[in-house]
Design a protein around this nucleic acid. Structure first.
Lengths: 211, 211
DNA sequence: ACAACAACTGACTAACAGTCATTTAATAGG
DNA sequence: CCTATTAAATGACTGTTAGTCAGTTGTTGT
């Protein structure tokens, strides 16, 4: 009796179709300027149906965020594979993150949206956990690169890999976020480019970790 | 004719009283869970009056943010004055930022709120510029500390002070933000404390900048 | 053919940001 | 002291939107 399976598959497809529709609108108009009615129309469904698949508008946006996080994890894995020493891996992962924030600017925006929320908000959403574990997996890619670096001697041995991974995650997320906000002011008032600062940051990180 | 001056003074007082009222509510219940009607009642004014003093709810929150930024700038200045070498100043400023995020958690939250917003949103608000220049002043305190460090030899000379200041600002803001979000997961799953990671970050920064 | 169940609908409600015609208070002039 | 003019404040009202739910439509198993 493959009917249950087919139904499950169809349910997932519909769910994805809704996320697709929401993405198209939110990525074009922004989260605040997109209404659930608009999403419903774009998905060719009624509004009520959206709420059968997602608990709330935030929950829907969280599902979009989950997609972005998956892409980011893959980019991190690729970045780590491209080079050999641990320190190189770290720098390359950092570059991948920056690339992600540019190429998938809208997914990055979604990530920021959730990192800015108070911890207690909407913690009960089932999607939240999935994002958390996704984040952990991504973090572990970084931590493993640090371990590699300690082993091959490219990274100083007196640090804890997971702690460094978390610190780097915070550093890079924050830097990209701040720069995204200030690009306008940046290039007019001070005569620095976004890349200048990113490179300065990489230089600092490299020196801070070198063994 | 000191009447105009008195009126101006009264206007500022009323404005401050509104911010006070909004702060009390938002800091207790959170921004999303505070309505303008609630603020009006707390301030013992009608809702319409709030809009004579602030363009929007966001504008009011931005004014709260401005208060926080002033406190932060002062803390940075104090932190820089407490120690002598440039590198020490940088580390001490970092510590001050962390302290700010703990002691004035609600102001930090307000800052995050605006750093997470898209650049184009509400850019026209008069308060925004004030926050931007406030931010620049704060950043200059950091940049000056880096300059001092280059001069006294505690910081490597091959970096641009303003670029380093911006990188550090991004790093630290991001790190604290991420940690604030993950404190729960953090201390349960991995057996690290918030302070451990902050210290790891400081260690990396110190090594990355040392001359 | 029909009962039982699942998926879907869209009109409806509640909540809230922001507005504006009207009222109230303060100031200046005669 | 009275009155005209301007400034400050009001709160009922509007428009928008997230979320709901009683009812309809379609699908499956007997």
């Amino acid at each position: 009796m493959g009917i249950a399976e087919r139904k499950e598959r169809e349910k997932q497809q519909r769910r994805n179709a809704i996320i697709d529709a929401a993405e198209r609108l939110i990525f074009e108009k922004g989260y605040e300027n997109t209404t659930m009615d608009m999403v419903a129309e774009e998905a060719e469904l009624s509004k009520g149906t959206l709420y059968l698949y997602f608990k709330s508008k935030e929950g829907l946006y969280l599902a979009i965020n989950a997609r972005g996080m998956k892409i980011l994890e893959q980019m991190f894995r690729d970045a780590a594979r491209e080079v050999t020493t641990g320190l190189e891996k770290i720098v390359n992962i950092g570059k991948a993150y920056f690339k992600f924030s540019q190429e998938f600017h809208n997914y990055f925006q979604a990530m920021i949206h959730y990192e800015a929320k108070k911890p207690d908000t909407d913690m009960e959403l089932p999607c939240w956990d999935s994002c958390e574990t996704q984040g952990m997996r991504t973090l572990e890619v970084v931590a493993r690169a640090v371990e590699t670096g300690i082993e091959d001697g490219s990274i100083r041995a007196d640090v804890d890999p997971m702690q460094v991974a978390m610190a780097l995650w915070g550093h890079t997320t924050g830097l990209i976020q701040v720069l995204a906000l200030k690009v306008n002011q940046l290039e007019k008032f001070n005569d620095v480019t976004l890349e200048d600062i990113i490179n300065t940051s990489f230089k600092m990180t490299r020196n801070g970790l070198a063994g």
